[in-house]
Write a protein that binds this DNA or RNA. Sequence first.
RNA 1: GCCGGGAUAGCUCAGUCGGUAGAGCAGCUCACUCGUAAUGAGCAGGCCAGGAGUUCGAAUCUCCUUCCCGGCUCCA
Length: 665
Amino acid sequence: MVNPDLVTLTLPDGSCREYPGGVTGADVAASIGKRLARAAVAVTVDGATVDLTRPITHDAAVAVVTADSDAGREVLRHSTAHLMAQAVFDLFPGAKYAIGPAIADGFYYDFELPGGAHFTDTDLERIEARMRELAAEDQRFVRREYGAGAGLDLFADQPYKAEIICNVTAGEAGPDDAGEVVGDGTVGVYENVRPDGTVAYFDLCRGPHVLSTSRLGAFKLTRVAGAYWRGDEKRQQLQRVYGTAWEDQKALDAHLHRLAEAEKRDHRRLGVELDLFSFPEEVGSGLAVFHPKGGTVRRLMEDYSRQRHAAAGYEFVSSPHITKSQLFETSGHLDWYADNMFPPMELDGGTDYYLKPMNCPFHILIYRHRTRSYRDLPMRLFEFGTVYRYEKSGVVHGLTRVRGMTQDDAHIFCTRAQMVAEIQTALSFVLELLRDYGLDDFYLELSTRPEEKAVGSEEEWAEATEALRSAAEPMGLELVIDEGGGAFYGPKISVQTLDAIGRNWQMSTIQLDFQLPQRFDLHYVGADNERHRPIMIHRALFGSIERFFAVLLEHYAGAFPVWLAPAQVSVLPVADRHHAYAFRIVDRLTAEGYRVELLDAHHDTLGKRVQRARSEKVPFVLVVGDEDAEEGTVGVNERGVEAVRRGVKVDDFVEQLAVQVIERS
RNA sequence: GCCGGGAUAGCUCAGUCGGUAGAGCAGCUCACUCGUAAUGAGCAGGCCAGGAGUUCGAAUCUCCUUCCCGGCUCCA
């Protein structure tokens, strides 16, 4: 006989317990253990995460969500966002609030301040101080539910909240709204209630939230920024405050430490420290110059890439940086891409010349130079092509977002029958190449037809998108759909790469294009002696050399593997009398094709020179003294290895070096 | 492009109330000749991003431009 007043709850370990009907998550946690009750921030009931105060009225699978889980941190962060909004209302009466979700590692909240005011960095401190006061007040988070009409009344003077309610009740909830309102037309509201019962703050919200503001404490506001309402640059720009929040101070400190570590491997910082490249103000925004060491790494990257491309059946071509406007009229770039192009130069009595933003039209002209047979296909034209794109001033960022860049660009002309196989070959090729450079964590993204900027029929887009998908699926990698992210002439697959500290970068792109062959009226003569339209595949594997350089630099934290390191070996004579021997080592290694530098003993102590070579992240530091000169040995300091190996035979060292270069380790 | 914050020696940064510029590291010279994470002394280095304005006087206050940083939007 089932007792109707009892509910049976199944816990994550599979055990079942009976509780009175209406029991709450907080009660359940408390019944299991004190420590769990303290750590609890929410509870999942049959998979849905709800407040600890929500009564449970039927049998269910229940799991307590603790603060130190991903789901728990999300609750903490969302609750901290509410706390922040409350602090902002206290300090800026009349502020309007928009949305305030939890995000990776933190949260933000968007506001419109009265009189169009802006937050400053000192406001950040004031807001944070106020948040700590409010947290200490121990305000309870209390959930209320309203109908759509009552909800609208509640937010009558809050236009952004009202818009969200209207959208949701009209069934047009965007992804951002999902965090704010429950989906069934009920308007969820959370109140922050002071111990004396008065309401300090209320917000439109789906929840769940922690029990009380006193649970919040390990947080820090990090930055202020402008952000467009609903991410639309045509709409109101709001003031956004970012913050981070964690289960305890220790976790917060660890997060801040990780940020500091990530900053140390920022490629812009390492570029200066290791003397690799710079952005002279005299040249212009987003235009890099590579110094000798950076130039060496770049050359090595390119050399290996060329070698691999030659082996993969690519032919090498070259094209100029500027061209008459007509080429980009034919290609459609001036219709669809003009915003990203530098303005034209008028030459030769009125002819406009443009800097090229892409290489494809040139490769097309090479293809079109003579009649092509089906026997010529697939035709794979490769070029390190330098392109110029007029990026908006606010988006330029180190080497990852520049206005002048070199792409390892190729265009494959093939038949429709060949296209899926060609895409697959290109995908396998890029993954193999990226692995050779030390990257091995990827997922794929399939970008579909852009809503506004697209040429060609829906059918062609659908066919091209399907071809990409069918080529991508056998790769065994996660495939994420990026709706509307394609280029104007076709859909694309991009390879997203995760680096050593888990950040993801978009690099390689493979794009399928039915349009440009039509616009340029390309054809080939088939076995049937008829003319046919070829398909074009655009692909860049590094994406751009600049961005790939930046990714490798950050991935390796400046410590390039031996095969890529600008200097592979530093030779340090202990004293002047060892210079002759040191030079012999240098000469031998140089003759064998290694990049070697000598740090002589004229000026600095040995310790100083060791320190210098290490700070330059040279893979091998060789110290040579009396014993070495007599025995034909070197003292080997290997980067990342604590112990020094003394008395290593030069031949043995050279062999080790050779192995590491060949293995690209 | 939009919002906010910046720019002082090659690098990292001081510079108070508006009174004409300072350190450490790097560089150069000299001494030291050294077996593993900074030897010592000395020298040199600045149109205080650029321009205009306010002022007796501007690194400092105001405006404009350039460039950088953090976001938004966009992207290889």
